[in-house]
Amino acid sequence: MLSFIARSIIQKTITLFFVSVVSFLIIHLAPGEPSQVDPLNPKFTPEMLERFRQEFHLNEPLYAQYIHFYKDLFTGRIVSWKDNRSVLAKIWERFLNSLPLFVVGTLLTWTLSFPVGIRSAIYRGGLYDRSVTFLAYLLISIPGFFFAYILIILVVTTLHVPVIGMETFGLDTSSWGCMLMDRVWHLLIPSILGATGGIAVLSRYVRSQMLEVEGQDYVRTAKAKGLPPDVVHYKHALRNALLPFVTMFGLILPGLIGGSVIIESIFSWPGMGRMAYEAILARDYPIILTVNFISAVLVLAGTFVSDLLYLVVDPRIRL
């Protein structure tokens, strides 16, 4: 067990190093320069462009830039080129904004998928199963931005309430409850949108897992010995069907930092995804690379956690 942990940490550190090199190279190979260096602005003289490049170390060889960057990152001194603010502070701020969206979205996905999928599996082939299947495919295939627009237009034109941003603008109320509920309301639609795809996919998984387990001999035995159907489904079958989902839980960790570019941009939600996207457009290398690095760490941590979880829940597995 301990040796497994040690081994996997060493492996993951090496992977991380390569990820950092490759992502650094890719970003520097891509054409374009930081938006501060704007060659088409008549007010920019060549000397100034040169000064900007010097300021950002863009004239130095790549390996020197690489060292500069990671030195700054690990000492926490790294600042965004766009506004000179500390990258880590910015990411933390955005992370806190993305977090509620992520939590509510995940909550919706994981609480709704199971009852929906289980029922589909139990009444397999029935009207309910078919309509849920149809709906699931519809939701998987509809483009997120399109669905978002439809939903926004519907809500705004029929209910006449604001939905964009983290709170109603210009609403200065002293009531604590009102403020909280206003925020919850603004959270609702983007999280529903974020969750739809997840619900559609996850409920399919649940259904197929349940079907597989329901076909097993021991479930038939349980039914045959006259146990009530609920006990068969929810105690004998579900427990075993849950196994793969435990590992999936570890893999949602990277979603924490990724955020959703589309949903955050449409709802003007000041989250991680939007910041990363805008950083890419402005070639704000410190932000792009730091977000990249942190998400790489989270992916590796996620796989590590799911390995461990598997170990815990499935006694058959020994590492």
Binding site: V104, F114, H160, W185
Partner: peptide, 21 residues
């Protein structure tokens, strides 16, 4: 499994009643 999502949904949707038009 059935009550949990219901409660979550109810809590989220009731927030509409608090938002000004």
């Amino acid at each position: 499994l059935i009550l949990m999502p219901m409660l979550v949904m109810v809590f989220l949707f009731q927030s509409y009643l608090w938002v000004p038009t």
